[in-house]
Design a protein around this nucleic acid. Sequence first.
DNA 1: ACTTTTCAATCAATCGTTTGATTAACTTTG
DNA 2: CAAAGTTAATCAAACGATTGATTGAAAAGT
Lengths: 215, 215
Amino acid sequence: MEKEKTDKKDHILDVAERVFAEHGFDGASTRLISGEAGVNMAMLNYYFGSKEGLLLAIFERRTTMFHGLIQNIGNTESISSWQKVEMYIEAYINRMFNNNCFQKMLYQELALSRKTEVTDKITQLLMLNITEFRKIIHEGIERGEFGSDLDTDMMIATLFGTKNFLVNTPHVSSLMFGFDMTDQANLDDKLKPRMKNYLTKLLKAYLLHENDNSK
Amino acid sequence: MEKEKTDKKDHILDVAERVFAEHGFDGASTRLISGEAGVNMAMLNYYFGSKEGLLLAIFERRTTMFHGLIQNIGNTESISSWQKVEMYIEAYINRMFNNNCFQKMLYQELALSRKTEVTDKITQLLMLNITEFRKIIHEGIERGEFGSDLDTDMMIATLFGTKNFLVNTPHVSSLMFGFDMTDQANLDDKLKPRMKNYLTKLLKAYLLHENDNSK
DNA sequence: ACTTTTCAATCAATCGTTTGATTAACTTTG
DNA sequence: CAAAGTTAATCAAACGATTGATTGAAAAGT
């Protein structure tokens, strides 16, 4: 039973990811997690050593999945910088909406002051995404395609922050938008295309008309 | 000693607000809070009834302060809609940077699934801000000042989300921007003006050039 | 004299973790 | 192939530590 063991561990990780996202790390007790997963409480420590180890295991699993998905848009030569930005937005949103619970858990952990092994690894992972975006924008500026008075890092904060606000504060955003933001179907069918459309227009306006005072 | 009592309660609220922001509600024990505040643990229950009551008291205090600050930009007739947006951004950022810990605490609470009295009140408070912004944008659209194909609610998510990302994930944003985001002096001197400048340009580009395909 | 505030001590409950026994699965051996 | 032996997985029970909260008495204030 080598296969089933992996399946069971994966199932625990799935459940724990969701429970951590819903209750936060401190608010999610090991009894709650094991109960939701339908396994004995001792199995968590048997498989992952500790609660912290469980968190780390969740992160490691997603990280290896992520690294397989990274596509170096920046190194492509044949397309315009704006097209690269469009591709980045598309890829970013697609990636984010596939790990809803994980993303939520991740930013809850980042909001706390404590520095742990997990916190550092999260930071490193985010910086990968950030570096990729920076490269695209700076190239666009050098090419003269974008204006020169751009705040690249602020754009990243906008990109990441807009998504986080919508997904991580579902009580508010559901009320704003008129549909349940905790329902994955709504996220995929309604929010996702709307976000792509909006963010593309927003960044396009900023990147291409930022120095334009004609109006 | 009527005055000192209020002072001491206020001091506890100050400390608790910070500790909640740093550790989250579940991660902040009553012993830690009382220890940091330099008061006996039993004082928390004596003054606020329970840990939850303490959280509620923190919120109530800020709410009454907020309601005194609300200025109805929307109802002013003599200025352009764009000027109103500029005023809104200015007022929003000024307000946010005065309650750093509170804001952080607030969004940590919103990220959790549990629905409490506090959660509902937070939602109501945010909706006030949202409604005000909506009014300004819709007026601008009706006046023909802005394009008609705007996503107002997404703009709100951008406004709130950009700020949240910068302030609520200090580990990452400090690394991005090269200065310590947990230092209030840096926030006031460096981040605040940069954010105002950026958000103004970003929204201006989106509001005024959104339908422009000349480039 | 009386009320309010403060405190150390303690409460029951819950926390993450460990234990030792039991069961299941696989390997070795006769 | 089947019995014995070995390892891995699972479980109820309990561990010490910490949690939020309460107590009743002492201290301070009026």
